[in-house]
Simulated scan of single mutants.
Amino acid sequence: MKNIKNLSKVLVSCAALLLLAACRKEQAQSASQAGTPIERTDPLASWNDTKVKKDIIAYIKDVTDSKSPNFIPVQDRIAVFDNDGTLWSEQPFYFQLFFALDQVKALAPQHPEWKNKQPFKAVLENNMGDLMKQGKNGLLQIVGVSHSGMTTEEFNSNVRKWIDSARHPVKKKLYKELIYQPMLELVKYLQDREFKVFIVSGGGIDFMRAWTEEAYGIPSYQVVGSTLQARYDYNNGKPSIVKLPGLDFNDDREGKPVAIEKYIGKKPVFAAGNSDGDLQMLQWTASNKYKNFELYVHHTDSVREWAYDRKSPVGNLDKGLDEGKVKNWSFADMKTDWKVIYPEK
Results as ranks from 00 to 15, higher is better:
residue 12 V to T: 12
residue 303 V to S: 15
residue 287 S to T: 13
residue 276 D to S: 14
residue 164 D to W: 02
residue 83 N to H: 12
residue 306 W to T: 10
residue 328 N to W: 06
residue 96 Q to L: 10
residue 134 Q to P: 04
residue 35 G to M: 03
residue 299 H to S: 05
residue 245 P to Y: 09
residue 264 I to H: 04
residue 114 W to V: 08
residue 156 N to G: 10
residue 99 F to V: 00
residue 150 M to R: 11
residue 250 N to H: 14
residue 228 L to D: 04
residue 104 V to H: 04
residue 16 A to K: 08
residue 195 F to S: 01
residue 75 Q to H: 07
residue 334 M to W: 06
residue 283 Q to A: 11
residue 170 V to E: 15
residue 188 K to E: 11
residue 185 E to R: 00
residue 247 L to I: 14
residue 114 W to P: 09
residue 143 V to N: 10
residue 49 D to T: 02
residue 270 F to S: 04
residue 287 S to R: 14
residue 106 A to R: 13
residue 188 K to I: 00
residue 191 Q to F: 05
residue 159 V to N: 09
residue 335 K to Y: 13
residue 101 L to W: 02
residue 123 V to F: 02
residue 117 K to N: 12
residue 28 A to G: 08
residue 344 E to A: 12
residue 185 E to D: 01
residue 324 G to V: 09
residue 344 E to V: 09
residue 312 S to A: 12
residue 274 N to C: 15
residue 115 K to S: 14
residue 186 L to D: 00
residue 98 F to H: 15
residue 258 V to H: 13
residue 305 E to L: 07
residue 256 K to Y: 04
residue 325 K to R: 15
residue 281 M to N: 02
residue 251 D to S: 13
residue 281 M to P: 04
residue 334 M to H: 12
residue 307 A to W: 02
residue 166 A to K: 01
residue 95 F to N: 08
residue 319 K to H: 14
residue 180 Y to D: 00
residue 59 Y to N: 08
residue 231 R to F: 11
residue 142 I to R: 03
residue 188 K to T: 05
residue 342 Y to R: 04
residue 342 Y to M: 09
residue 115 K to F: 11
residue 247 L to R: 07
residue 158 N to E: 09
residue 97 L to E: 03
residue 308 Y to M: 08
residue 193 R to K: 15
